[in-house]
Design a protein around this nucleic acid. Structure first.
Lengths: 240, 240
DNA sequence: CGATCGGTTGAGTGACGTCAACTTTCGTGG
DNA sequence: CCACGAAAGTTGACGTCACTCAACCGATCG
């Protein structure tokens, strides 16, 4: 019964048996959802969503119908310590694949934070890491070529997958379409396709309808100029 | 002797006299710095920087010499709860104008957080707001036209200036060059200049060498499609 | 008074978006 | 088992937007 949420938090702070139990219990109310399901303004009016299995993303729709994906979420990631704290939600969250999502009522989360300083700090740190990811995204969008940009995003996702043990060192399969990829890198699907084609010809990727497969991460990282330090993969206090 | 840092934190949590005193004391060690001065890896090996006066920014240099500005900082903003926490700094921080910067040793910050839950929460919340700003930046870079993008950034800065009482409703003068602006929106200085020209012709801006002046914020906001909700301007518990 | 830095403008190029057609895959129902 | 339709992917032609290169202007500062 391994809970990816607990695993993630354990990566940021030594947890007592009690702490782990509390975290795991908090996830007991979970649902299985289809791809493309919107989470926000759902269930309890202000709750924290935790991805237990599958993929999700934060995104924003624009008046002209365009969509920008702001961040990807994979098992262990949690959606929001905000919703409750800050009045309005300026973006949405949706599943990208079939996913299992836990909903933790805001009050329960508050209680956890107040009762357990170690958890509170761990949450805080995950937040800092997320912020680092957002900063890296901004750099990519502002100053990298489209090829570097796509490669950089895929690299990041590969490293994150590996960090949480979703995959080994083997090929990394990401279960989303080129359209999703396009929405994330800020390009049109057509042009994204052309970039992906070049990456494939460079031997870094393979494709299957509905998923991207990174077959040669080292090559991809070289193309992207990728440096994983900002992900702070695993901090040093992994307690045994 | 009003301290913008204290003012900002007070915006996020009711502070006792004691709290305010603690915060203010923490800023007592401050320096005046010239424009373009790099802060990171400076002073104490891991410290928190607080902007007391002037402007600063986070930025990242790329191998090809390009620079991406990731975030602007104005009085009251603080630079880093990270530096110490997460091992490596993946970007830099620099002054944009002559600025007064306080340096709070990491240990002292830790002590404050541990001793005062109310401060801890307030810090956390400022972090959430900062994250919202980063998300908005990503949306701009990915899906807005260059004109909207420049306008959106300037709008954001105007609102933030007003929120902290840096200016009234009057014209908003931002003391940086078009080059800085270009580094922030991810365009070349030349093209930024052309965009700025159009905004000027639209009657939203004026320019002076070394600064941008927003003379008609409403017009600019309309061009940008700007909605300030993500800034969470002032939360509701401003204690008297 | 010259040097430097920011700003301004023009001409030419390349990258990315748009539009449109066509293919492949997959799921569904006859 | 096959037929169909929907959704993803692929490719080409073409237009526009943003970059590059280059020249020049205007302030400010030593």
């Amino acid at each position: 019964m391994t809970n990816p949420f607990v695993d993630k938090i354990r990566g940021y702070a030594p947890l007592s048996r009690d702490d782990e139990q509390l975290l795991d219990d908090a996830c007991h109310q979970s649902r299985s959802l289809p791809p493309g399901h919107d989470l926000i303004r759902e269930g309890a009016p202000s709750a924290v969503f935790v991805v237990l299995a599958g993929w999700a993303c934060r995104y924003k729709m624009l008046p002209d119908g365009g969509r920008q994906i702001i961040a990807f979420m994979m098992p262990g990631d949690f959606c929001d310590l905000h919703a409750g704290v800050l009045a309005e939600m300026d973006h949405s969250i949706a599943t990208l694949t079939k996913a299992r999502i836990a909903t933790i009522p805001r009050a329960r989360m508050e209680a956890l934070i107040d009762a357990r300083p170690s958890l509170s700090k761990a949450f805080w740190w995950t937040q800092l890491v997320d912020e680092g990811v957002l900063r890296a995204t901004i750099v990519s969008m502002g100053r990298r070529t489209t090829m570097e940009r796509v490669a950089h995003l895929l690299c990041e996702l590969c490293f994150r997958m590996r960090n949480i043990g979703l995959t080994g060192d083997g090929p990394y399969e990401m279960p989303f379409s080129q359209i999703v990829l396009a929405d994330a890198v800020g390009l049109t699907p057509v042009h994204t396709n052309r970039v992906v084609k070049k990456l494939r010809e460079a031997g870094a990727l393979e494709m299957r309808p509905g998923s991207v497969i990174v077959s040669d991460l080292a090559r991809l990282a070289k193309i992207a100029g990728f440096d994983d330090n900002y992900l702070h993969g695993r901090l040093n206090h992994r307690s045994g």
